[in-house]
Amino acid sequence: MSWFQKLMPSRIRTEGGKSRKVPDGLWTKCKACEAVLYRPELERALMVCPKCDHHMALTGRARLAAFLDEDGRIELGQNLRPTDPLRFRDTKRYRDRLIAAQKSTGETDAMVVMRGALMELPLTACAFDFKFMGGSMGSVVGERFMVGVNSALEHRQPLVCFASSGGARMQEGLFSLMQMAKTSAGLAKMAEAGLPFVSVLTHPTTGGVSASLGMLGDINVAEPNALIGFAGPRVIEQTVREQLPEGFQRSEFLLEKGAIDLIVDRRELRAKLHQLLSLLMGGRGDGRLREGPVESIDAAVEESPADGVD
């Protein structure tokens, strides 16, 4: 069983081996280049198409599993559960939407937080789960992010956040808007404590998440071709009544406009973030960098820049 499957909750895991020789989902079609890909191989490549480098979605849990060292991970803020403060109902009740999202993802809300290490560099990491109601930020997401901030403050570690979110969770009304203020205030504390925050923007990150913690990294990193912006493209098109240019609000556009520091291929993220964080944390102690450990898990990547790290 692959690491990816191990992470999937048992109720949605396909126990294919027993009843069928060829389980469903052994092959996946790349949405970008339509190549038919062998699933285990794709998972080894962290869901990046080996043919066209298209970055497919990762769940929050898979993201952290791929990012953090295997040893010593501790999940934080698991005890937090969403509520329905407005008894909100649109075409469905918010309560029912929550239950459906919890069933389909196996998560309790749209963010996973863990303390662990990145190539032996201790840190705290948070990841949004876009599959959980579009990664929308409600009270639990905001509070879990703060659990992450507080863990980083307490242990004097860097914080990394992988964003993928449509924005604030409308069903929680103003409570969700206020999570923008809450998480940003937490990041102000990080800055005062001299601890780095790296924001990794993945496809897609818009609205209230982009307009708060997403853009507040000491370093803002994006995965290739991710849609990142304040307003969604459809809203902008309706406002300006013209078609938006190709590539508008994509990572490469943001780099060009000065909104992000760099674009990093997912398969190189561990090495690149280790390089950045060890340098950012390098001003402590005697200011001498110690020999960095060598990247080991992405042997699948041919041109890993890991040996260039320290």
């Binding site: 509520t83 929680e172 409570f175 809450k182």
Partner: peptide, 9 residues
Amino acid sequence: LMQLGALER
């Protein structure tokens, strides 16, 4: 700011 939110523990 930290108290803003509606959730259960």
